[in-house]
Design a protein around this nucleic acid. Sequence first.
RNA 1: GGCUGAGUGGCAGAGGGGUUAUGCAGCGGCCUGCAAAGCCGUGGACAUCGGUUCAAAUCCGGUCUCAGCCUCCA
Length: 459
Amino acid sequence: MLIYNTLTKQKETFTPITPNVVNLYVCGMTVYDYCHLGHARVMVVFDMVVRYFRALGYQVTYVRNITDIDDKIIKRAHEKGETIQSLTEYFIQIMHEDADALGVLRPDHEPRATYFITEIINMIQHLIDKGYAYQRAQMSDVYYAVNQFKDYGKLSGKRLEELRAGERVEVDTAKQDPMDFVLWKTAKPNEPSWDSPWGAGRPGWHIECSAMSTCHLGNHFDIHGGGMDLQFPHHENEIAQSEGATGEPFVNLWMHNGFVRINEEKMSKSLGNFFTVREVLDRYRPEVVRYFILASHYRSPLNYSDQQLDTAKQSLDRLYTALRGLTLTHIPCPNEEYRQRFHEVMQDDFNTPEALAILFELAREINRLRVDNQAQAIVLANELTMLGGLLGLLQTDPECYFQSAEHSLSTEMIEQFIAERNAARQNKNWAESDRIRDVLKAQGIILEDSAKGTIWRKE
RNA sequence: GGCUGAGUGGCAGAGGGGUUAUGCAGCGGCCUGCAAAGCCGUGGACAUCGGUUCAAAUCCGGUCUCAGCCUCCA
């Protein structure tokens, strides 16, 4: 298994710390708003990674955190006049609904920052004890002293002098070094807070991930993932915190997924150019969105457009069309050629576009065989379904896929029309036959005649 | 300015020193009453300038362009 490691900037052979075990931590959401497509990408990509590791027989523990306390949450709750708890509970539920829709399996653990305050305080205390953190005055913020950690910058390739030179924000006089970052934030009036040795306050953003990941997965674990934008400062700071506190290496392999873009620009909250998962699911079925995400390599940029989603739909239709009308036997396919090639490309840094290309080759072969050698076609259809399943795709019954969505006509009515049309066709009344077909077409129902009869699907 | 990464056919998107990616769209054919779906065939590409090499889209260097990070962000 080759995986690109951001830490070394190259593909590496993945070697688990414990044979056959993968411990994976991914930075999840800050729950103060709806998930957008960028969040969907992280969820789908790492879902694919987890599924694939499991398919290879690894015992995976997958942790994806939930940030349920931070400035934006406080601000949003205040604006909406509701409690932080009700705000975060609501958006956690929304996130779960979106993830479920996209076929994203729940992580094994979804720790929340507010449930780990004790562990966070302990970790900060360790850092202070070891000289990595300081408090300038009683009842003031606690900072991480970046210059105490000699490897600072090893993940992002940044050097402290350059960072300081590029410092744009006004120097905070409470810090010893402009690059120092906050571990514990003193509470202002009316802000939620927890007691600590440094006064009432709340954790800084980075420390929660250090505390929760090491609690669940140990001081040293295999893979840590997240979006590219977390590389710096978030993940860099996590390394500094965790390795500073534990004295052990933190993570062997860092995986970062590329951004979703709109018009060649990063989709983000601050730019306001985002689509929420809900908006997109309003117009495209979830599996199409999942396909769309997996049709690009996880490290490449993913440009969002309606045209792209339309194409994704057509592609997925093609795969399901190949499966249509074949009853799966679930007997393993003796021809291992496709499976082998699929695994080869997946084991090269999760090359899902290449893996999908192999599925299309399978689809073509099924279509070739289906008339003259249905038994063999079914064998390959089993294989296609199985391989698709490794990506979390093609698990719907093809008939349901093509017919399930809501339409203005009931199935009975559609079948009634088809019967009428077939009667007309018997009489070679092509005008009437075509008229009925056009009527259905206008309702978004496509008819397909074949030797075995007429089938229909939603456009 | 510093640090990343990228520039592939009409669109999307892999690959990557000599041999078809794949999907959508196009063109020709088969099938069909006509379609649709499917099958067969087909055109079309590697930003630019140099270098290495028998051979470069693929390696190296320069240039241009784009994106990202350096501030919250998946």
